[in-house]
Design a protein around this nucleic acid. Structure first.
Ligand code: NAD
Ligand code: NAD
Lengths: 207, 207
DNA sequence: AAGCTTTTGTGAATGAGAACACAAGGTTAA
DNA sequence: TTAACCTTGTGTTCTCATTCACAAAAGCTT
């Protein structure tokens, strides 16, 4: 617990550990060793312990980790210990799928607002949320929403991202296959599905 | 051109370079320097040249790269120089979005078959493809499909993955938040949207 | 309470990837 | 042809991440 820089790679793994711990707790495991967790998620025990060590020592030697306590610790590190409101922009094919997806809630995310610019979509209600006109985006500030999921057409992504930032958004999950230019205190995480898929043939055997 | 192991990180970047080159060619750039490409996609020129160097020398000193030739070269390395047929399994919310998504085609992928196990969905036609009963999955072998996109419920992902492998699939793009156990000659690339999103709060400023 | 067992936490060693820096090779112009 | 000028390709260096390996700490047993 006297390290300075925390590797990005470590931060990427923490959510994996968190989900593993949550699932194992649900399975009745009140206590957990680095070896058990490693086996469950497919990692090495040393890696797990090293990653944790950047943030302090929260296990018990000879025993392992208290599962609920571990979950709390990782959640706290990732700032997932309180719920996060998110806004979804672009309620097209992908946006609609995301809107009804329940998998975000285990990390404490909830979609609290949805926007589009298509008149045919505005006013429609999906999963309890009414789709609003993008022109009214500024209302997200009053709702204290700081996270956005961006699923608009690629060509619109940059300008919408800028609007989002201007309205108080601090983090963006971007699905468009393009680079977003944002102030450097804003975090963008991009998921580019086709890009990932493009690697598949490289690894596939000849025949 | 006498390197042995090619870093995975390099393979991850190649599709980015490829798309960059394609877009710049469309923009009229018949020739390209590593610096120009780097600026366009947000990378370093040295990184780009080093990555290319693993596969040989296909630029011209003092000039740069011939864009169409570069595109051909990268495509060939990634085995994207011929079209790849893909099967989509699980035509739920996400599966439907993927089915109508056009972004795969620039890399040469086309979805040629779709399967579900929900009687209400079987027989429906989306984007020219009829959704078939998962029980008929074996037909993909005759169609020589080797790539699968897996968008079924998490609990079903493992068993469906096994079926896919048993029917000749060599590469799987998996959207379920779970680890798939497959023979090691089968390549799985997983996209876990909630997991990526879970990192966002960590990087967001306090206030 | 002493010894045995287990598993953590972490320095040290190893390994891998990114950045640097420049010679090699090619173009252009005169 | 020669000189000035670019940009590639790559050996070297440096930085960062993973793995190793073990002392330290806790529980359990007798
Ligand atoms: N569908 C997929 O499976 C998939 C996969 C990977 C990436 N993507 C990417 O995700 C994005 C969305 O894909 P999609 O398939 O849902 O496209 P889509 O065309 O179905 O949806 C885009 C939505 O954004 C809305 N929109 C456009 N401009 C807007 C603006 N300025 N303000 C507010 N709303 C706006 C449109 O009205 C539409 O509802 C695209 O960038 C696409 O490349 C999609
Ligand atoms: N919707 C999203 O935005 C989203 C985001 C991230 C991850 N995911 C993941 O993607 C997967 C699909 O998500 P979804 O939202 O589309 O779920 P969904 O329930 O809408 O769709 C699942 C589909 O799979 C089909 N299916 C189930 N078992 C099957 C089987 N054995 N054989 C064939 N088909 C089968 C179902 O009939 C259904 O049509 C899930 O694992 C989910 O966790 C979804």
């Amino acid at each position: 617990m006297r390290h300075y820089r925390i590797p990005d790679e470590t931060v990427k793994r923490l959510p994996v550990y968190l989900r593993g711990a949550v699932l194992l707790l649900k399975d009745g495991k009140k206590s957990l060793s680095s070896g058990e967790l490693a086996g469950f998620i497919g990692a090495s025990p040393a890696q797990i312990r090293k990653d944790f060590s950047y943030f302090g020592a929260f296990g018990t030697r000879g025993v392992g980790y208290d599962t609920p306590k571990l979950i709390k610790q990782i959640s706290k590190i990732l700032k997932l210990n309180k719920r996060h409101k998110a806004v979804l922009v672009g309620i097209g094919n992908l946006g609609t799928a995301i809107m009804v997806y329940t998998g975000f809630s285990i990390y404490g995310f909830s979609i609290e607002a949805a926007f589009d610019n298509d008149a045919k979509k505005i006013g429609k209600k999906i999963n309890g949320i009414t789709i609003e006109d993008i022109a009214k985006l500024r209302t997200i500030r009053a709702k204290k929403i700081q996270i956005a999921i961006l699923a608009v057409t690629s060509g619109q992504a940059q300008r919408v991202a800028e609007s989002l930032v201007n309205n108080g958004i601090k983090g963006i999950l971007n699905f468009s296959p393009c680079r977003l230019e944002v102030p450097k205190n804003i975090k963008v995480i991009s998921i580019d599905i086709a890009l990932d898929m493009a690697r598949l043939p490289y690894y596939m055997p000849k025949t």
